[in-house]
Amino acid sequence: MNEILVTEHLHKEYEGMTVLEDINLTVKKGEVVVIVGPSGCGKSTFLRCLNGLETIQDGRVLLDNEVINPGRKNLTKVREKIGMVFQSYELFPHKTILQNVTLAPIKVQKRDKAEAQKEALALLARIGLEGKKDSYPRQLSGGQKQRVAIVRALMMHPEILLFDEVTAALDPEMVREVLEVILALAKEGRTMVIVTHEMAFARAVADRIIFLDGGQIIEEAAPDAFFTHPQTGRAKKFLESFSYEKK
């Protein structure tokens, strides 16, 4: 029983429309869960429910047995344990790279500035960007920005990392540099929930694949099983949309 994150009967509505319906998911420590599915199926919304960026109408989300609920006082405390990386990077444009990654550790976790900077530089060195520490986000390429965003999330020492289509806004040649960072994190045994459209990456990084469609979990399987023998028609159709044939 080393579950980190559990959702129970999660139900999300938006303006009277059901967006997510009865989602039950358990993520164990060290597990990499990849969520795939067609656009608009609710993947990103689901991810945002996990750290309370979205309200839910029914069910609950538990992190280490603590309920995550927007509006509750403990929300910022629980959020410290959840790192999130966004599609559009969302680095802070008015801060340097070093300031971007150390802001929350210093201000939120009240860590020593010198110690936080030391850790930040070590992490930036790992992704080959220590030379950019005094640059501003706009001086970096998309791939570099996204790698910095990953470091920024790691700096909080989260128990679980959420990735929301982190390569969707990137030029193809930059996708790999970001995905390799995530693969390395998976190897370290980090717990992660990843939403992605990169099927080859999903297969490589996942311990488990969740196929979401129409706001419901349609299929849940090991990656090889899912990609070679999808059980449902909808999953089959979805996977077919990624392959091309000349007719």
Binding site: N51, G83, M84, F86, E90, F92, A104, V108, R152, M156
Partner: peptide, 10 residues
Amino acid sequence: QIQSALALSM
């Protein structure tokens, strides 16, 4: 930008 700051538990 605000969401990303929220996610950093600010």
